[in-house]
Design a protein around this nucleic acid. Structure first.
Lengths: 328, 328
DNA sequence: TTGAAAGCGCTAACAC
DNA sequence: GTGTTAGCGCTTTCAA
């Protein structure tokens, strides 16, 4: 009968109840060191009976290990935090962290003030997940944070990278477009300062050149609104465009909306493909052809790595798979 | 010149540099109690110079205040955590928590095991945000958590509620449908056990009855897939349906996809309206008519309330506004 | 106005 | 194997 004690039960209470020292109780509960079977049993029994829950805060303090993981998103302004992609990443991180008693907080890292990272060099921070990061930020990682920072995107010698295989996904999509007979394929990119998005652009350029096709780039920013404008721009510059590849599904949906507004049939007149496979890609009209982007899996792996303090290879790439639907 | 000390600087370092005691430094930096102008200045100067960052963990330990906020989502199984709505809520919480040095973790609360909450009665938890909660969970809030738990949805005497005005939003949408000449309006609901979603149903029933119109309910679960099936069901049961109101935008998008699959014109043959105003509502085809659901604002207010430990009124309702687009 | 001192709950040497 | 002891970094009485 777990009497709901007003005050929360501490390790001392457990030790007393089990008639052992606090140190022994700590060892048993922590799974560390040695303890007699007898002591072990008594401690576990007492802990169960009392409903003991270790105080993560105290543990973190003494061990010097932090208690929260910061998701830091680089961008020109704080609106980068409004992206559903960021939402997904944060939620995935918050889910992995829960069993560890660790929480996640979300911060914007100004594009032009990479030193902002220094503020995170705080003993209460157990790790940092860099999102949409760039070289200057990577280079500004404070020594105190070394080994506890990973990047969802490009990495550096000091910061391991966890990312989707942008180039592979892009190639899969472009081959699909090409196989469908498209030859004048424009691309709506992400922000040009963002190196991980730039990898898709590079792949696009390489493939277009290899196939002897024209390179047609319009800059976007991952949003639908910008995709809408970009589609109009592309149409104006290159009226014979027969396909548009967008760097993200949100962008692609904006592109489709713009084409519809112009009375252009998708995919009949112009094929459209995205990247991410967001939930709405399947129900849009027409259903969006895209490539998978396992954000949750990527973030889960990244967060687990920093939580476990396990050494990680410099790059962990997650494959991207084509999802052919109606739009291309 | 902030020498990047390898070891992080502690309050002791600041006190020493300012030539005061640790207690005085603590008072000054904490803004508490009294201190001479002189001491004040010296402490602040030293803190700045040394780049002092208080260790939240230590502070939380001594104050007994926790260090993480748990977002607990009730549902039949863990897939409830996959909802973009949950993502938004977690990200918004993680954003408000950041300046406080507090992190957010995400947990699933099994529908049939409300006692799961007890596990959260942990000194390291500074608060709990209940999402999609139900009465049994509300009643199971442990005494130790009292005053630090709020609900995004229905509340209870012990748990203040922060929520969108479902009834108001529903009414706005239904009046719009009615004004557009629709008279045989079906509704796709949320899970029937979810009381906060049930408020929309109640409002729907009330309005339909008041207008002398038929009540046509199909159960959904907020997902597009279920919305798709529900639309088909509605069409089968009531072939003359001329409008479908869905409890969420995701559901509405599924409904539209289903109608399209049947060759039914939206809004010409059947009008469709959702609820939430998710980003994709504006770019879908046709653009979705819906009602706003300021999730980020709601969660921000709720999280701030528990972070500040401020007493809150039993119910804080956030208005919902009609967004008329093309689908209805 | 300030400082000394006593912890917050826990872990990890180091003795026994 | 087990207990004693010394802190982790900070806040907060309580005296001075």
């Amino acid at each position: 009968m777990p009497a709901p004690t007003a005050r929360s039960v501490t390790l001392d209470d457990v030790a007393r109840a089990a008639e052992v020292s606090r140190a022994t109780a700590s060892r048993v509960l922590g799974g560390y060191g040695f303890a007699s079977v007898d002591a072990r049993d008594r401690v576990h029994a007492a802990a169960d009976r009392l409903g003991y829950v270790p105080n993560i805060t105290a543990r973190a303090l003494v061990r010097g290990t932090g208690v929260r993981l910061v998701v830091a998103v680089t961008g020109t302004d704080a609106t980068v935090l409004d992206d559903p992609y960021v939402d997904r990443a944060v939620a995935a991180a918050a889910r992995v962290c829960a069993p560890h008693g660790v929480g996640v907080s979300l911060e914007w890292l100004p594009l032009d003030a990479p030193a902002g990272l220094r503020r995170l060099d705080d003993r209460s921070v157990c790790g940092v997940l860099l999102v949409n990061t760039i070289a200057p930020v990577l280079d500004a990682v404070p020594a105190g944070l070394r080994g506890r920072v990973v990047s969802i995107g490009v990495g550096s010698p000091a910061v391991p990278s966890f990312d989707v295989d942008n180039a592979g996904g892009t190639e899969a999509v472009l081959r699909h477009l090409h196989a469908g007979g498209r030859r004048r394929i424009a691309m709506v990119t992400g922000p040009r300062w963002l190196s991980c998005a730039e990898r898709s652009v590079t792949a696009y350029q390489r493939l277009m050149r290899a196939a002897g096709l024209p390179v047609r780039l319009v800059t976007g920013d991952f949003t639908a609104a910008r995709g809408h404008r970009a589609a109009l721009t592309a149409l104006r510059r290159w009226p014979d465009t027969d396909a548009i590849y967008a760097v993200s599904d949100a962008t692609a949906l904006g592109v489709i909306a713009a084409l519809r507004g112009r009375g252009i049939q998708v995919p009949h007149d112009v094929a459209v493909a995205g990247f991410d496979d967001i939930p709405y890609a399947a129900v849009s009209a027409p259903a969006l052809t895209t490539a998978t982007h396992p954000v949750a899996r990527i973030v889960t792996a990244a967060a687990s790595a920093v939580l476990d303090g396990r050494p990680v290879p410099p790059v962990t790439a997650f494959p991207s798979r084509l999802v052919a639907r109606e739009s291309a």
